[in-house]
Every structure is written in C-alpha cells, then in structure tokens.
Design a protein around this nucleic acid. Structure first.
Length: 648
DNA sequence: CTGGGGATGGGGCCC
DNA sequence: AGGGCCCCATCCCCA
C-alpha cells in the first residue's frame, strides 16, 4: 500500500515536476530525490499526484517523529549525512537487509534509534518479503564508505540494544540453501544504492556477501571492506556464525517486560516461577524461565528468512534452519535418513527396522490400522469347526423346514445376506454370543442372518449358492469337507481330492490352469503369462469362476472360457514366494500389494461361512506378479487365511 | 469416505 | 552449544 505509493512516486522528470517536495521540506536533499528517481525509473511507473502527496506526508512524518536526525546532524539538515553517521552497519559496504517496513522509506532514511516500547507485547513482525518490489522494499543497501574516519562508534549511536535493528545477513550462495532458493534470492537481489555513487550489480553484491559469510565463518565478525574493521553487533555476529538465512526481529518486547513475569527465586526450592496467567511453571534456571516467558509474550526474535518462522532461541532457529537444506545426515542402517539425531534415535528405538538399537527388538513394520487380533491357526480352526458343526446342524434343520430359498435373490430369501456379517457382532468379545454353548452359537448365527444386506448377495441355499453370473456352486460339497479339514488342517495338503478343503486351508497354494483344474502344487509367481495379457486376464478371472477354490472343480471348469486362460504349469520355487507369500499375512507384507477389494463368491447354507476373491497386483523381490486371492470368513466373523494363484 | 493408529516432523524445554 | 526428551501436529496407511 505504502509501497505502492512509493512505487509510483518517481519517473523521469520526477524532480522537475515536483519541486514542491523540496519546497515543503528543505531537508529533502537532491540526492534523495535522485535516488527515488533512479529507482522509480527502473519501475517505469508514473506517479499520480496523490502519490506525491503521500510521499511528502511520509517524509514529514518521519522527521516529525525523529527530529534529532535533523538536529544531530553535524552537517545540518542532511538526511544523507545522518545516514552515514547512523550506523556502521549502514556505512559499511556490507549487504545488510534493512527490514523496517513500518517506514516506507527503507534505504532512504536513517534507521531510527532504539525505540522505547513500541507495540506492547504484540509482535511487530516485519516481513519485507510481503511487500511489493518497490522503493520500500530494497533488500540490499550499500552505503559508501564515510568520508571521515572519526565516525561515531556503533554503540555510541545505538547503545547496546541492537535488537532494534531488523537486519539480517543474507547469503544467496549458502550451501544451506536449496538451488531454487539461491536462484530466487539472486533474482530478488536488487541493485545496490550508493555504491560509488552508482548502483552495484548483483554479482558484486553477492561476492561481498560471500566474503562476509566467510569472515563470519572464520570468526572474524567484522564487516568486510571496512578499513576500520567495524565489528558486527553481537547478534549480527551470531547470525553470521550460524550461516543460515536468518534475521533478527524487533518484537518490541523489552527485557523488563519479560522480567515482569518472572517471580523471585523461591528460597526453598531455588526455582523461579512463571507469573504469566494460568501458567505457574517453575524453572531451575533463570535463562530457561526467561525464554519460557518469551514464548508467552511472543518475543521471538530469531527469524528464519526462508519460511518466516520465528524462534525465541537461536539454538532452535539453527536447528530449524537445517530442515530447509533437506539434508538428512543421520542415517539409520535400514537406509532411512533423518535431519536430527534425536529423530534417528527415536526411529531406532521403535524397532521397526533392521537398524533397531540393542535392547529394542525388531518388529514387523505395519503402518495403519492393525488387524483385529486373531487367534492362532489351531485355535481358529477349532472354533470354526465348532461353528460349522452348528452350521451343518442348522442347515439340515432349515432344509427340512424349507427355510432357505434356492433363489439367488436376497429379497426372495427373506433379506438375509450371507455376505454381510453383522458388524456389531464379535464372538470373541461379546459375551452374549458365548460360543462355548450351542445356544450362544445359535444366537450368533441368528443375529448374523438377521443382518440386513449391504451388498449384492447371492443368497443361500441348503445345497447351492449362486453367483451373479449364474454359476451355481455345490455348497454341500464345499461345506462338508471344510468341516473335516478344519479340524485337521495339515492332513490335506497337496491332495487333489480335497480341493474344496484346501481352498480354506490355504496351507498350500493352488493354481487354476487353463483347463480349469486346480492344482495344489506350490507355484511360482512366474507363471507363464505376459504382463500385458495378465491384466485383462485378471478381470476375466474376476468375472468368471476362475477361482473355484471352495467350490467344486467341475463347476468352475464347466463354465470357464478357456480361450482366455493361457497359463501353463508352474514351477515350484522353494525359498521364494512359494514359501510364504501364499500365506495371507505374508502376502500383505509384500510391498506395493494392491487389491481390488473383497468380492463375495460363495457362502455356506446357513450363511456362516463366506468366501470371496480379490484381484491382486504386487511388486517384490525384484518381480512383478499378479494373482487372485481367495479369502474366507467363518461363522465366527473371523477371516481365514487367503490364497493366491499367481498368473505371471 | 471416514476414522483409527503408527511413524515422522518439528517445536519447547531441560540438561 | 549441542544433545536429548517430551509433546503435539501431520502424514500415511489401513480397515
């Protein structure tokens, strides 16, 4: 706003067209106007009359506010001379960012002396970056060397309160800056004023900035090019030593104000108490409570120029500044890197990787919501067996009573949906469904069956279930061996005669070949199938009963469109996928596993056993593989382990 | 789509 | 000055 006014304040002929500026205030020097003219001429925008008046008012306001800049000038009312004597920081040909947005005359008028209290406890945060590029936003100010060597010392002019100066050291070539940031800073570097009466080019400026940073790095906290070896202020030196793109903000909060919130040291515990309302924290060290109170007051003087965040302590600023470099020097043996040591320590203490620290056992990395606690396989099999016995008994009773419709429509089967387990039922947690008694099982099954359908259902039947594609599975054949197998899961491995059993045992993988027959042989993901053909194959499989696990093989083979299946016999790959990937849990640990979600395929007569399929795609162990998984759910609401037939 | 839960980023603060 | 702990916010993954 103000900047925009200044922005339009100058153009060629500006001085001639507006002599009233000097007429109004003789302190306005020709050089000053010349500066404005030069600056504005680069902007190329004509000043409206109102803008000129605004400038007049602003200049007048400035000198009304800081009259001593006129009176104290050894050479009369010369703002320019005041500039030279104002501060060695300004006098030195050093890139110092003067951020005093409160005055639109940045770079033209001397910085005011340390103010008395400015804005109470509120932070008077100044961010030049928010201002448009104009006269008020000249980030780099170069002032020529003073003609005289008897300039006043920095401290004489400004006392010890350097914090009143919102200055910063900016090094666009800092290795801590990203290339993008460096480029942007180079682009933002404005020509420098007053350098030998002219304008200093950006490369020269950057070279000097680099010199100063180098000096700071070597512990020589003087402004370069200064024959007087003008020392930096302590804060400037501190920032220079940090070698970060930072600046010091004037928050307007005095030390006295901070101290006002610090109690006297407790004679008993030798601690200081924070007097800020509703705080009362105690601190054992004065400096700690001081910075604590500063956080209350918002007295954050250390500003990161990269993101604008401010900190109470320079230590925090320095630590923060590292995040902008993207550097993560703290490496874990697992390959992860961290910007901070404590982050690495925490990571290794979690035991989520091979780099776990001694004493912190490595555990499986599993992000996201964990699965429901599942009993061991034997326990699940036992419970499922009990459930199926109940299922079979219920099924036969219902068959006698004609309770099940042979229709595939859920509405025709009384709305019961065998694919929709009641979400509120958990037989492991709900005492109302104690599965140790027949009544409990009955209650569970009934509640299960009464659950309204929430997805397309195929209905239930004492002897069959129908898929959406019209294929009917022999559920009687499925459920009976299941019960048998569930009680002795290991007795059926690799026995073609117990295909339906294997479908829910999942202790061995199955392969559905082009003929529709199911092979229990352990198969490799490297089924012979071109990657391009694999994808449509999966969709075809999904639409057809290619996954006949859990159903009779005759049913699946009879309806398979054989032309779409070009699989050949798989080769067992011991030690590879065949060892573990066919276990559902192991599958999930494979990276990049993608599934299309559960698609119901079949159900037991009483609806207590469900099974469906999932298309799968994954990458791992240097291979890319696709497959179709089968997952079952027993009458207890528990998932069975799944199974995958690898297609490529 | 939503919510739960673990991992990480990062600030406050202590030592 | 720097390391480390605590805590909170956010991200990410999953059900």
């Amino acid at each position: 706003m103000q900047g925009a006014q200044l922005h339009s304040a100058a153009q060629p002929g500006f001085q001639q067209r507006h002599p009233q500026l000097q007429q109004m205030d003789p302190r306005i020097q020709p050089q000053m106007l010349q500066m404005m003219q030069e600056q504005a001429s680069r902007q190329g925008i004509a000043p409206p009359e109102q803008a000129m008046k605004n400038i007049q008012n602003q200049i007048k306001s400035f000198y009304d506010h800081y009259p001593h800049y006129v009176n104290s000038s050894p050479q009369g009312a010369s703002p320019n001379l005041d500039l030279q004597h104002a501060s060695p920081m300004i006098q030195a040909t050093t890139p110092i960012m003067i951020q005093r947005a409160a005055s639109p005359l940045n770079g033209f008028l001397p910085s005011p002396p340390p103010t008395q209290k400015t804005s109470g406890r509120f932070v008077r945060h100044v961010d030049a970056a928010l201002m448009p590029i104009n006269l008020a936003n000249v980030p780099m100010v170069h002032i020529q060397q003073p003609a005289t060597h008897d300039m006043p010392l920095f401290e004489q002019n400004f006392g010890s309160d350097y914090s009143s100066y919102q200055s910063s050291v900016v090094d666009p070539t800092s290795p801590h800056l990203s290339p993008e940031r460096q480029a942007s800073m180079r682009a933002m570097s404005m020509p420098t004023l007053f350098e030998d009466g002219g304008i200093m080019s950006s490369p020269e400026l950057m070279a000097q900035q680099h010199m100063m940073m180098a000096a700071a790095h070597e512990g020589r906290y003087f402004y370069p090019d200064s024959p007087m070896r003008i020392p930096m202020s302590p804060r400037e030196a501190m920032l220079a030593s940090l070698e970060v793109d930072a600046s010091i903000e004037d928050t307007g909060i005095s030390a006295e104000e901070v101290a006002a919130y610090i109690s006297q040291q407790d004679p008993i515990d030798s601690k200081w108490t924070c007097l800020f309302p509703d705080c009362g924290k105690k601190f054992g060290r004065k400096e700690n409570i001081r910075s604590h109170v500063q956080t209350h007051l918002g007295d954050r003087q250390f500003k990161c120029n990269h993101c604008g965040k401010c900190f109470v302590r320079q230590h925090d600023l320095k630590r923060h500044a590292k995040i902008h470099s993207g550097d993560k020097p703290h490496k874990c043996p697992c390959g992860n890197g961290f910007a901070r040591q404590d982050a690495l320590t925490r990571h290794r203490q979690r035991g989520v990787c091979p780099g776990a620290l001694p004493g912190f056992e490595r555990r499986e990395v599993k992000r996201g919501r964990p699965r429901k606690n599942r009993p061991e396989l034997d326990e699940r099999a036992d419970k499922a067996s009990r459930a199926r016995k109940m299922d079979a008994r219920r099924g036969s009773e219902d068959a006698d009573a004609g309770a099940y419709s042979s229709s595939s429509s859920p509405s025709e089967s009384g709305g019961s949906n065998p694919y929709t387990p009641p979400p509120h039922l958990d037989p492991y947690e709900d005492e109302a469904f104690s599965l140790s008694t027949a009544e409990g099982v009955e209650a569970f099954i009934k509640a299960y069956q009464d659950t309204p359908p929430t997805s397309p259902a195929t209905g239930g039947s004492p002897t069959s279930a129908s898929r959406g594609d019209g294929l009917t599975f022999d559920l009687q054949a499925a459920s009976s061996p299941l019960s048998h197998h569930a009680s002795s899961p290991s007795s059926h491995t690799n026995q073609p005669s117990s295909l339906t059993t294997q479908a829910f045992d999942f202790s061995a993988p199955l392969l559905v070949d082009h003929a529709g027959s199911v092979s229990p042989t352990a198969v490799s993901p490297k089924q012979i199938q071109s990657p391009t053909a694999a994808s449509p194959l999966i969709s075809n499989l999904h639409a057809t009963p290619a996954l006949s696990h859990g159903m009779s093989s005759s049913a699946s083979s009879s309806s398979r469109p054989q032309s779409q299946h070009q699989m050949t016999q798989a080769e067992p790959t011991p030690g590879s996928f065949a060892d573990g990937v066919f276990d559902w849990g192991a599958i999930e640990t494979q990276p990049s596993l993608v599934t299309d979600g559960f698609s119901p395929v079949g159900a037991s007569p009483a609806g207590t056993d469900l099974w469906g399929e999932e298309d799968l795609f994954g990458e791992g162990k240097g291979e890319e593989w696709r497959g179709v998984g089968v997952v079952g759910m027993d009458g207890l609401g528990e998932e069975w382990d799944g199974e995958i037939s690898w297609l490529n």
